[in-house]
Design a protein around this nucleic acid. Structure first.
Lengths: 342, 342
DNA sequence: TATGATAATGTTACAGGTAACAATTCATGG
DNA sequence: CCATGAATTGTTACCTGTAACATTATCATA
């Protein structure tokens, strides 16, 4: 005569409990339960106990859907990065979450693998979930993306790049200036035939190339660039190294668009018995953690990735609180770390 | 006499357009527009054109909120990992998304920094957004987490670990067996005084330690373990190396719970002039990409991270289509890569 | 031209929480 | 013992897209 032990075994739908279910159990309306959840003191002490027990017993889980529907406020922030495997973005994300999480916001992460088409789809998806704000990391967008963002009417912050014209607000570094500075540094150290290794030709890489080219030109040196559209990797750095030596045997310096390529190139030299930095100077970009411990220490451009994420989140929160854009473009400092490899 | 150029400048609320707005513009009911969006052929050709134009003109963005509310289907999958900066999880996530994205599912990523408390909060947050399924990467859960998951009534898949009892379904590797195999391999290569470096004492690390201990014991060797609760890093590997040599100067092997520690330890040896592998064998775990190119090549346990993510997503999709759990525990193979460092 | 079938469009109700307002209870002082 | 107001609880409406059903338009055929 017993009822089934639980709903699962009874073949019922086992739907997750709603406020109504809790209210029915206690014998009040769901409004009362709602009040309890938002501020327990709004209901009488005896009900507080009963409602608390009922919530616990049923295992009530809050449901944001109604709120999102009625107030168009999801308390979720969309974060769009090109890649998750790239350590750089992982650190930016950590910075973002370190601010959003304590503020009660959920981050909705999406990535688009550097494809404009995917970016469009991902932004549409994030907007369809009614995110309250967006942090994106590209500087060029299709017309449709711009329209979507404008229509959505939510604050948008672009990160990584402080040079391209911002939609509303951009926080990043000046990639061209950083690349210029590193190239200058390599030249000062005596390198002359410096080749640039580039992968994934996005805006940031193009700007770095421009910085490198300008520095070479300003010093009366000849530039040479090896590039590909595919993803960068340690192995690609090795390949490029071999290619550079084949094309220009007297190459004495390599500046890479990121540390992955640089590390690959460095190991390729070690395997080939090329002395670093005497015979070949190698520099990277972005300060991969490993660059700071390896032997020899890799020359690299150190960028404030985590702080960039933090700042982006802070400015976004500020705008969600109704404040206007305080500063359209925020340019963060970078640092040239010569290491031991140039 | 002109109307303002756009709504922004008119001080209006600039709310994002709804189906009703589109319908009003065309002169039909929103139901007709809804039909057009789901299957254009359901409306007459002239209306198809007009609705298409209106949608475009207003920049309509679909809104999932009503659907989530009425059907409790969000087409979002929650993915919970301990850390995003850890490359291992980035690759798992890539595997997951490679399956979910083409299937029309949005991933909602959350991480909890190895804290049980944060895990609870994160799972509650994901459930409050009505995710249709969950992929989580811990094997031990608080009672409250178990209750939430049971009440939510959505498919849950645990990844990383194939040994702990699965809530519903687990996909991972046998960490203990893998650590045993690598320890055996080190012993075979002649190392005797092998020390284990562990950070972040989660279940997986504990199982690896057990594998190491068993292998040492089975070979009549003495075990020694350096561990900390804090996060692993290259620098920590360096510190541990110094500590191990101080405590046990005749240490001739290091087995690390991950490649980050191993790489740090390896460079520490290089800086101290200790020859690898002659004087010191070093092995890692998980096959960090860099381990596959560095000099010397790092001995490591190669795990199918991306495939693990793919499989988890595929099984989740299958269950979302109503299929039952086909296999409660799926044990993926690992591979011992001796490299040149042991 | 009437009839029935089919295509095209409209109407209504619903999902679950909460703002806004309404109603009820209860204690207190006159 | 009732008026008054504060404290507590209830009622109604709303947010947006769509399933389910209802209605109207269109057209071929008897």
């Amino acid at each position: 005569m017993d009822t089934p032990l639980d709903m699962k075994s009874s073949g019922m739908k086992n739907k997750r409990p709603t406020l109504q279910d809790v209210a029915d159990l206690v014998g009040v309306t769901k409004m009362t339960v709602s009040r309890y959840l938002r501020n327990p003191d709004q209901v009488s002490p005896p009900l507080q106990t009963k409602i608390g027990e009922a919530l616990d017993h049923l295992g009530y889980i809050p449901n944001r859907a109604p709120d999102i529907l009625s107030k168009s406020k999801s308390h979720a922030i969309g974060v769009l990065v090109p890649s998750l495997t790239n350590q750089v973005f992982a650190e930016v994300i950590r910075g973002i979450e370190s601010v959003l999480e304590p503020a009660g916001y959920q981050t909705m992460l999406a990535h688009y693998g550097y494809s404009k088409e995917a970016e469009e789809k991902r932004i549409a998806a994030l907007l369809s979930y009614n995110v309250d704000g967006l942090i994106i990391s590209e500087s060029y967008h299709t017309e449709r993306v711009r329209k979507m963002l404008s229509v959505a009417g939510i604050p948008v912050i672009e990160i990584m790049d402080s040079v391209s014209p911002a939609i509303e607000q951009a926080i990043g570094i000046d990639n061209q200036a950083a690349a210029y500075a590193m190239t200058e540094c390599m030249i000062q150290k005596g390198h002359r035939k410096i080749v640039y290794f580039a992968a994934r030709m996005d805006q940031r890489t193009l700007q770095r190339i421009r910085g490198y080219q300008t520095a070479m030109h300003d010093n009366g040196l000849t530039e040479m660039c090896l590039s590909t559209d595919s993803a960068s990797s340690f192995t690609l750095g090795e390949q490029f190294m071999k290619e550079a030596l084949a094309k220009q045997p007297d190459t004495d310096g390599i500046f890479c668009t990121n540390d992955d390529l640089a590390i690959g190139a460095l190991y390729a030299c070690q395997k080939a018995g090329i002395k670093i930095p005497e015979e070949m100077g190698i520099a990277g970009f972005h300060g991969h953690n490993i660059a700071r411990v390896m032997v020899p220490l890799l020359a690299t451009v150190i960028t404030p990735r985590e702080e960039m994420g933090r700042l982006a989140a802070e400015h976004l929160l500020s705008r969600l609180q109704g404040n206007p854009v305080s500063q359209k473009i925020i340019n963060l400092p970078f640092q040239i770390e010569p290491g031991e490899s140039i």
